[in-house]
Design a protein around this nucleic acid. Structure first.
Lengths: 334, 334
DNA sequence: TTGTAAGCGTTATCAG
DNA sequence: CTGATAACGCTTACAA
């Protein structure tokens, strides 16, 4: 590898001058500056970022904790993160979060990242404290199931979103509305369920435990299976509409309906959450809560960079959602 | 941040001993080892990876160049990459590749990564040479459109895959088979098109230029638009079956058919490539070439790690594909 | 078995 | 304006 020393020698200047040129210090005489740039070009030199990081105590790397890279919702957020991070010259290190190996994070990221972005994971207090202590800020996209006061979040107002969605369903005459959530412990989807339930009750509707269907957040298959079981029993569904905590599950539910001869929205209205690209290409297309994925990714990086650069405290942000009414919801049967 | 020096002081040993303990050198007396471990625990110390990298000249980071993180095909590969990389203690740095900023890669990764994994991008010779010179190996998942002899690849045998797919269509009586490829210059999808065309000719069928429909690899919308235009013209399609270079485009084509009243596979058979999760949940489900995404990701990391650890030369690998016959293909009309 | 010290490639502080 | 030189936190001969 070609180092700064070689460049200095080649240009006939000291190593310091090379640094000045690279870092655009305006102190260098134009002539020497050109000499150095010339040498850099000739040697194909670029500064070793690891060495620079060690010295400057800035890695320009941000850790991002995925739950499941295969989930298009999460990658939609990643798109915004990456786009904005690139502008700021930050690289993202993607890691799949495994609760069983949470302690591993401490060593994994040690001295490697300037900040860590969570995707709704509920970290142990111990872990949170550790990063606070070594000065690595945490910020979460999506409110974790077990929120922590020193981990601010960017999210939408799920309560308002579901309130609007429920109103939409009520206009179609639905009064018994089910929900498909996640079985996973401490999933950020639990937050959505709690808001849904609260919004439902606030509208004077009831919610029975047996109206909660268990899906699994990364997997459409699980949703398909669960719904198929309910449908193949021969007995009628206890609800006329179901709201799914994410689109992947809604697509599974839709498949289950199709395979079991249940018409959507004729016999069952399906509403969903997130609005991933695919949700407008199912048949019928899904009515869903639009989650501003790229925007929230961008906002997250901006918030984090602002903190890193100015020391301003990180603070939570609420972004705007929307209800996309498509044809998977309709008049309640009967 | 707590450093190794503090640990040494706290444990009453020299800094070297701390290193020995951390790196499991078997030379340390058990008693001192315990003293050190105790100090590490008490101080909540973990070694600074940046400093370690600088010294060992190993970053344990691998750069991964995406085309579009939103493409589920690419994230499916990432899943395999990440899973295997984690086992080897490697972190992945994901970057979206932008041909306009290709030169930027040199500085971006300088001293930061041990290797770079491409997802079918055709890098400039200049760039390839640069990384060869500084000793950062390149490996590509998917054969680039402009392959380079010093960038080995992992891929399936597309020629064989399409040969089998075409046979499948011929059995249904199709003789005029279109293809939807990518407009993007130098996309890895061009490779697929060339193999398709060759396979078609090899079976004694013809291929006319107007049977090539232009999609765009990251986007289902473009495919939808292109196909809609062809369909809304009122004239019949010149082919009875179409093979799409990826599932995302096939889903767009399917949507276009649905919205234009074209029955699939009654009036048009749709075959596809990749077998992303969603391709089995469209209606009808898509007949497609199964691309072993996680496996190819795993194989890639193994190949790269083997090279990094033993110095063995990187070599290209061909993985097994499969044809998944589902209901989007059927008897040719007429 | 443990300690000392050189050096990885930078940046940044001081003199000159 | 430019040149020495001391860190940054770690690994690893080599010495003790």
């Amino acid at each position: 590898m070609v180092t700064r020393d070689e460049v200095a020698k080649h240009a006939g200047v000291s190593v310091a001058v090379v640094s000045y040129v690279i870092n655009n210090k305006p102190v260098v005489k134009e002539a020497t500056r050109q000499k150095v740039l010339q040498a850099i070009r000739e040697l194909g030199y670029s500064p070793n970022l690891t060495a620079r990081s060690l010295k400057t105590r800035r890695t320009n790397q941000i850790g991002v904790l995925f739950n499941h890279i295969g989930n298009p919702f999460e990658t939609g957020i990643a798109l915004g993160l990456e786009h904005r991070a690139r502008k700021d010259g930050q690289s993202l290190i993607f890691q799949t979060y495994d609760p069983l190996e949470e302690d591993h994070l401490k060593t994994l990221f040690s001295g490697r990242v300037d900040a860590i972005i969570l995707l709704g994971q509920s970290l142990k207090t111990d872990t949170v404290d550790h990063f606070a202590k070594i000065g690595v800020p945490l910020f979460s996209v999506m409110t974790p199931d077990q929120p922590n006061d020193i981990v601010p979040c960017a999210d939408i107002n799920w309560y308002e979103a579901y309130r609007a969605m429920i109103e939409h369903l009520i206009r179609f005459g639905h009064t018994r509305i089910g929900f498909m959530g996640a079985l996973n412990r401490e999933s950020y989807l639990n937050v959505r369920f709690r808001h849904f339930r609260r919004a439902l009750l606030a509208q004077g509707l009831e919610f029975r435990d047996e109206w909660l269907v268990h899906g699994s957040f990364g997997s459409l298959e699980m949703a398909y299976k669960q719904m198929s079981e309910r449908l193949s029993g021969g007995t009628d569904l206890p609800f006329t509409a179901i709201v799914c905590a994410n689109d992947l599950m809604a697509i599974g539910v839709l498949s289950a309906c199709r395979d079991n001869g249940v018409s959507v929205p004729g016999q069952l209205s399906i509403a969903s959450s997130e609005n991933i690209l695919m949700s407008s290409h199912t048949s019928p297309p899904l009515t869903t809560v639009h989650y501003p994925r790229p925007e929230i990714g961008v906002a997250t990086i901006e918030e984090v960079m602002n903190h890193l650069n100015t020391g301003a405290p990180l603070s939570s942000r609420t972004l705007k959602h929307e209800i996309y009414e498509r044809s998977s919801t309709g008049q309640a049967p009967g």
